[in-house]
């Protein structure tokens, strides 16, 4: 007797849970031949707002987790992804990748997580300094996470691209809300399942699927978001993001053209992008 197909319901990932969008809406995505691949949740601005509240609440405790612990958790994500790589390869192929590219992308994605796991207890030394000052102060600078980061993930290389921007942000103690690739969102939600089984505390990574046109404005203007990362080439959108981000002087980070397999895409300087430098003046003699 033949079995019935078990279709997967792709939902959002907010606060360590998989809720449907509060709006009840969906959009469809097709494979390269134009056949229906899946129905995705069409996240609303309210979903984003809820995710910000959760990301904000999760940020302090995530930032204060020890560097060792954060590194272990990133490594754990890599382990979990390794165990499920066949699934990710086949999802990438379904979304139009060639078999060879899909395999490379998944392998690179796993290696990238391991790479940033290693930086967890090292980038602080890299970006901190004792500064020479002419007064009688001991003057030193260290880095701290900016806080809550909104991310518009790249359209292409939807798994590797997403991990390449998320990993440096979270290893630095930020919490993130990611809008997945609009045309290829499957792997982002499957990746959420990996996160969910990797000891990543709920709310540290939140993943939405939906439309940039609808959400980018709120992501850029929300006063409780401290930084926004946009991966793409839409100059008009970058301009409007910059304008809205000025409301609370959000840090804007744009990655325009990218082949995310490029080795320049893994660097401690990408961690620094979502870090804030704090300088302390400590009196030494009176």
């Amino acid at each position: 007797m033949s079995r019935l197909d078990i279709q997967k319901t792709y939902k959002l990932y907010i606060g360590g849970k998989f809720p449907r969008t509060e709006s009840g809406r969906y959009f469809t995505i097709n494979d390269s031949k134009g056949n229906l691949l899946a129905n995705m949740c069409l996240a609303s601005r309210k979903d984003f707002r809820n995710a910000v509240v959760i990301a904000r609440n999760a940020q302090n405790s995530w930032a204060s987790a020890s560097a060792l612990n954060k590194g272990q958790i990133l490594y754990r994500i890599a382990e979990m992804l390794e165990g499920r790589k066949e699934q990710f390869i086949s999802e990438l192929i379904a979304q139009g990748e060639t078999a060879a590219n899909a395999k490379t992308e998944v392998h690179e994605a796993i290696d990238r997580l391991v790479y940033y796991a290693g930086w967890s207890d090292k980038y602080q030394q890299f970006f901190s300094a004792v500064n020479p000052v002419s007064s009688s102060h001991f003057n030193f600078s260290g880095v701290e996470p900016v806080g809550v980061v909104a991310i518009i993930a790249p359209e292409n290389q939807p798994l590797l691209g997403l991990i390449s921007v998320v990993a440096p942000a979270i290893v630095g103690g930020n919490t993130v809300i990611v809008l997945a690739s609009e045309t290829k969102p499957l792997t982002a939600i499957s990746f959420a399942e990996v996160l969910n089984s990797s000891d990543v505390p709920g709310g540290v990574v939140n993943i939405l699927t939906g439309k940039k046109a609808e959400l980018a404005g709120q992501m850029a203007s929300h006063m409780d978001v401290n930084s926004i990362i946009y991966c793409g080439t839409d100059e008009k959108l970058m301009k409007s993001i910059s304008e809205s981000a000025s409301l609370n002087v959000k840090r804007t980070i744009f990655y325009k053209k990218h082949d995310w397999t490029n080795e320049l895409c893994e660097s401690p300087y990408l961690i620094e992008k979502t870090q804030e430098v704090k300088t302390t003046w400590h009196p030494t003699e009176i």
């Binding site: 707002r49 910000v52 709120q218 203007s221 929300h222 006063m223 409780d224 409301l247 609370n248």
Partner: peptide, 8 residues
């Protein structure tokens, strides 16, 4: 029309 932060 802009979501707010408690910081302000």
């Amino acid at each position: 029309g802009i979501y707010q932060s408690i910081n302000y």
